[in-house]
Simulated scan of single mutants.
Amino acid sequence: MRVILCGYYGKGNGGDEALLASLLQMLPNNIQPYVLSGNPSETEKRYGVQAGDRLNTFTILQAMRRSDIFIWGGGSLIQDATSLASPFYYAGLMGIAQKMGLKTIAWAQGIGPLNHPITQFLAKQCFQGCTAVSVRDGRSAKIVTKWDIPFTLAPDPVWALETSPFPGLENLPTPKVAVSFRPHPQLTPSRLEILTQALIDFQKATEAFILLLPFQPIKDLKIAEFIHQKLPDHSQILTIENPRVLKGVFGEVEMVIGMRFHSLIMGAAEKCRCFAISYDPKVSQLMTDLKIPGWELSKLPEDANLISQIWIDNYANGEALLLDKIEFFRERSLIHQEVLHSVLEGIGNRK
């Protein structure tokens, strides 16, 4: 069977690439995936799959005519917080796939925010037309419950993503602390200055080596470079494109200070102590689910010394998830795989 995979793939975002790698890892062996990508050649090279331009209408329609299934996911695809374009793009493709008779799966979805009636309507219509729906958090589950749509709830699939080592990481100083910040309107220059000074003080107190991990370099790299300039001898920027290697880095790290959603999941899955700075409801939900300490970005303390002292306390006294809890989340995340296999094998048996 030919299956189209549609998400924010090939756009240089480590979290979305980790979702794609997890999805490919979970597909049955008899499936031939075709990935809609922002960088098809790079996607083909990295994952050994066929890929096509996610914005080329002819390419997309041609792929749909040759395919049986359309898998939509995972992650925060259906949300209008950043722009209206995203829900229109994904809902449009899902609608076309359904009109063309493809079975559609909304996989590992993180739904919302949906602030506009038109995006709420589009999302509801597309989810109602799906053969199966799986969501990754309680907030999304509440939305599809309100829409009276059957669904499966399981933790983010990246919990189960296999890891690979980062060559040479063992040669960097220890202990290591990972930092993953991203731009946001509420991350003002003054707040970035405060966080950077807090990191400087934290590094002096702990003598930790700071690994700056820009999950989406086109957006995050400038922030990483700004911090590195303030800590040139005690930090290093790691730009990692392979999501398995990116997750593997966290296995060598004592603590992660993260804004990026998947930096916290990868850190927690690899036994790191975590500290969150939330810019989005999905991060706040994760903080609640995993009991991760942190702040809402809008409520970040204005005192760099206070921030550094709280980080130091978490570094010294904070606790990583227990191994049985990590294994619980990993096993539960494999429910997303069960959803795929149930639908795909059922369709294969009827062919």
Rank of each mutant, 00 (worst) to 15 (best):
L264S: 07
K219N: 09
E254C: 04
M259N: 10
P155H: 07
P232R: 11
S278W: 13
Y279V: 04
I218V: 09
P293A: 02
A123V: 02
Q128C: 01
D313A: 07
S41D: 12
P87D: 06
L36T: 15
I31Q: 12
S86T: 11
R66L: 06
P87V: 14
S263G: 03
E225I: 02
I223A: 03
P33M: 06
Q186Y: 14
P167H: 00
P87T: 06
V135T: 08
W295M: 11
G251H: 05
G12A: 02
L61Q: 12
Q128A: 07
Q120T: 11
L114H: 09
Q309P: 00
V35I: 08
L344A: 00
K124G: 02
F328N: 15
R260H: 05
I111A: 03
A224Y: 09
I96H: 01
W107L: 10
G74I: 09
I240S: 08
D137Q: 15
E319Q: 13
L231N: 13
V256A: 06
T288D: 14
L93A: 01
K45F: 06
C6R: 02
V179M: 13
M100I: 07
D156R: 10
L264H: 10
W72R: 06
T288C: 05
M259Y: 04
G52I: 09
L212E: 04
Q197P: 10
R332H: 03
P157R: 03
F226S: 06
V343T: 00
E170D: 14
F328K: 08
G12L: 09
D201H: 14
P87I: 13
Q337K: 14
F70M: 06
K325A: 06
D16E: 10
G15K: 10
P28T: 12
V177Y: 04
I312D: 03
N171P: 00
A81H: 08
T152W: 05
L238S: 10
C6V: 09
L84R: 05
A198L: 01
Q25F: 08
N115R: 15
V249N: 07
K176A: 11
M255S: 05
G74L: 05
S180M: 00
G251E: 01
I347H: 05
V339Y: 00
P214W: 05
P301A: 01
Q32Y: 15
